[in-house]
Amino acid sequence: MKNVIITGGSSGIGFAAAQHFCNKGYRVLVIARNPEKLQQAVASLNQSEGSGEAIALALDLSDFTQVRAAIGEIQQLMPSIDILALNAGLFSGRSYAMTHGGYESMIATTHLGHFELTRLLLENLKQSQDPRIVVTASDAHWAGGIEPASFTHPKYAKLPYFGVIWGYGQSKLANILFTREFAKRYADSGITITCFHPGIVNTGLGRDLNQRVADFISQFLLAPAKAAEAIVYLAEDPAVKALNGKYFYKNKPHRCSKKARSRQLAEELWQETEKYLASA
Rank of each mutant, 00 (worst) to 15 (best):
K24A: 15
G25M: 09
G25W: 06
Y26P: 10
R27Q: 13
V28T: 07
V30Q: 03
I31R: 00
N34H: 12
N34F: 12
N34A: 12
P35N: 07
E36R: 15
K37I: 14
L38S: 06
Q39D: 14
Q39L: 15
Q40P: 11
A41L: 05
V42D: 02
A43Y: 08
A43M: 12
L45G: 01
L45K: 02
N46A: 04
S48G: 08
E49G: 14
E49W: 09
G50V: 06
G50Q: 04
G50L: 04
G50S: 07
S51L: 12
S51T: 15
G52W: 01
G52E: 02
E53Q: 15
E53R: 15
E53Y: 09
E53N: 13
L57H: 02
L57F: 03
D60E: 14
L61I: 08
D63Y: 01
D63A: 09
D63Q: 08
F64Q: 10
T65S: 13
Q66I: 08
Q66L: 11
Q66E: 14
A69G: 12
A70P: 09
I71A: 05
G72I: 09
I74C: 06
Q75G: 11
Q76S: 14
D82N: 15
L84G: 03
L84S: 05
L86N: 09
L86F: 01
L86W: 01
N87Q: 03
A88V: 04
L90R: 00
F91Y: 12
G93E: 00
G93R: 00
R94W: 12
S95Q: 09
Y96I: 07
Y96H: 06
T99L: 03
G102E: 02
Y103K: 04
E104T: 03
S105Y: 01
I107Y: 00
A108G: 08
H111E: 01
G113C: 08
F115Y: 13
F115M: 09
L117P: 07
L117E: 01
L117R: 05
T118I: 10
L120C: 14
L121K: 09
L122Y: 13
N124S: 14
L125E: 00
Q127I: 11
Q127R: 13
Q129T: 15
P131S: 05
P131L: 08
V135I: 13
